[in-house]
Simulated scan of single mutants.
Amino acid sequence: MLRSIRTYTLLLTLALLGSFAGTANRVQAQTYQIDCAILLCLSGGWPASVPCARARAEFIRRITPWPIEPPLQIWRCPMGASYHPVTPSENRGILYDILFTDRDRLRPLLTPATSSLLSENAIFNLGAPKLSQLPEGFALHLVQDRADIDISGPEFNFVRSIRVYDVRYARQHESGRDGDCNRSATIYLGTYGTQGDFSWARSAPGALPAAHVGLERWGSNCPSIYHRSVFVDWRDYEGNYGFEQVNY
């Protein structure tokens, strides 16, 4: 199963390599492409490739103040067309939802070079159905602030694993008058819901992951600390841990 996911992620990543070369009059399609790339590259553990490097750069840019955005905006990746495998247990078909619609709807997303790459023969050789065999009549549609297909299954746990910690400030210092230790912090945690919807909630220094750097001495005696950062972590499809931190 994991080998199948990696194979199809690689294929779709190669597809994105061609589609990133769009011009300014295709800004809307570019928006779709970058979030599809983030989705696919994140699931595969950010494999080394040009499209995944660009996707990761955008993923990090979105948490670089200010403003702080959801690093993955899955509602911008059209997944409204569905490929239903013959065998219900073949979850690999879910990844097809991201790019593999009929040819007319592929046209805004794929360049001629990419379309050639995803020829019927190339797809058939990977054990997937030809594009002409996909069901017709699927309309491209977006759902505001959530995925436009059901992603509640465990194969999309990597989306819900993403956590964004916005440490707006954390201050610790000793009061000169009475020697008391004054501590104050404003921290928010951004998380993804069952269908990829993103929301913020109040958090605290003690909830920060061990990989976060800057508040190690928080609560220990009273060293002077003033810290601001945004920290994002996640687990890929195979459960491998990753994180990034931006200080400001």
Rank of each mutant, 00 (worst) to 15 (best):
R202Y: 10
S184M: 12
R183D: 14
L215C: 06
A207Q: 06
F198E: 03
G193M: 05
G190I: 00
C181R: 08
F231Q: 04
D233C: 11
C181T: 13
D233N: 13
S224H: 09
G190R: 07
R163D: 09
G176I: 05
H227F: 11
V230C: 08
I162E: 14
R177D: 05
V167I: 11
W200K: 05
S220M: 12
A210I: 02
V167R: 03
G193T: 07
P209H: 02
H227V: 03
P205R: 12
R217Y: 01
A185N: 03
S175F: 12
Y165F: 15
V167Q: 07
S224F: 05
S203P: 15
I187E: 01
T191K: 11
G176L: 15
Y169P: 00
Y188Q: 15
D180M: 11
R163H: 12
A210M: 07
S199W: 04
R168L: 05
G196Q: 10
S224C: 09
V230T: 05
Y188G: 14
Y165I: 15
Y169R: 11
Y237K: 01
R183L: 13
G193F: 01
R235A: 10
W234R: 10
G176V: 07
H227I: 08
R163T: 14
A207N: 08
R168M: 09
D180P: 07
N240V: 00
D178I: 02
S161H: 01
T186K: 10
Y188W: 14
G176R: 10
C222T: 03
D236T: 00
A211P: 11
R217V: 06
R183G: 12
Y169D: 06
R168C: 06
A210R: 14
S161Q: 01
D166Q: 13
L189K: 04
F231T: 04
L215E: 06
A207K: 07
W218Y: 03
P209Q: 09
R235K: 12
S203T: 09
R168S: 10
T194Y: 02
D197L: 11
G193R: 07
L215P: 00
H227Y: 14
W218D: 03
C222V: 08
R228F: 14
V164E: 01
D233M: 11
H173N: 11
R168N: 04
W234H: 01
C181Q: 07
P223Q: 05
T191C: 06
T186M: 13
S203Y: 12
Y192G: 04
S229E: 02
T186Q: 13
I225M: 02
P209Y: 03
S203K: 13
H227M: 02
I225S: 05
S224N: 11
S161A: 15
